[in-house]
């Protein structure tokens, strides 16, 4: 058994059991899923450009921001019929948010396929004050809400889309350092 709370990331392969395919990515640098060719997914790409118009290009929808893409995705999934496979690629934070939108729309295991994230920036929720700290690169972060230095636990909540961050009292850090020196 895989005992992990991480999102189930795996290299993207077009799933032949699906009858329609939608691929969302937070940058055009993300490659298409393996197996694209005869069957092509619909492609939605974030370009971070305020002049771009959605539906401007054949076969690809360009979106101005991740937020714009996710809002459009929520609307699309609310009307979608059975048989769709949703593929996501991009940064860890983007993939977390795609999973939340897909879960809310009632998609299940097998309908959402996520590529291994392209960055290590994680969202971290402070267990002490509930503040979401975005784009955390290191194993620690100073919480934007309560100022606690949070240690990021390898424990991810799919519902919150974030890792758990827990502070470590100063006296414990000192004691453990002292123990390590003498031990």
């Amino acid at each position: 058994m895989i005992v992990s709370s991480q999102l189930p990331f795996a290299p993207l392969v077009l799933d032949a059991s699906g009858v329609r395919h939608l691929y969302v990515r937070d940058t055009a640098d993300c490659p298409l899923p393996d197996g694209c060719g005869a069957v092509m997914p619909e492609i939605w790409t974030v370009v971070s450009d305020a002049t771009v118009m959605a539906d401007a290009r054949e076969g690809e929808v360009l979106l101005r921001s991740v937020t714009a893409l996710l809002e459009r995705l929520a609307g699309r999934l609310a009307r979608e019929r059975v048989g769709l496979r949703l593929y996501g690629a991009g940064g860890a934070s983007f993939l977390s948010r795609v999973a939340i939108v897909a879960d809310a729309a009632g998609l299940a295991t097998g309908e959402v396929l996520l590529a291994p994230p392209r960055d290590t920036a994680r969202r971290v929720v402070c267990v002490h004050c509930d503040t979401l700290n975005d784009g955390v690169q290191a194993d620690t972060v100073r919480c934007l809400g309560c100022g606690t230095t949070l240690f990021v636990r390898e424990h991810y909540s799919r519902g919150l889309g974030a890792y758990m961050g827990v502070g470590e009292p100063e006296i414990l850090l000192q004691a453990m350092e002292a123990a390590a020196r003498h031990g």
Binding site: M1, I2, V3, S4, S5, Q6, V125, V127, D130, R153, E154, H155, Y156, S157, R158, G159, L160, M164
Partner: peptide, 19 residues
């Protein structure tokens, strides 16, 4: 509040060795 909605496999993730 953090583990709410998790599966058996997910909420046991932090436990070492048992897996």
């Amino acid at each position: 509040k953090f583990d709410l909605g998790m599966s058996f496999r997910q909420w046991h993730a932090p436990v070492p060795k048992a897996a």
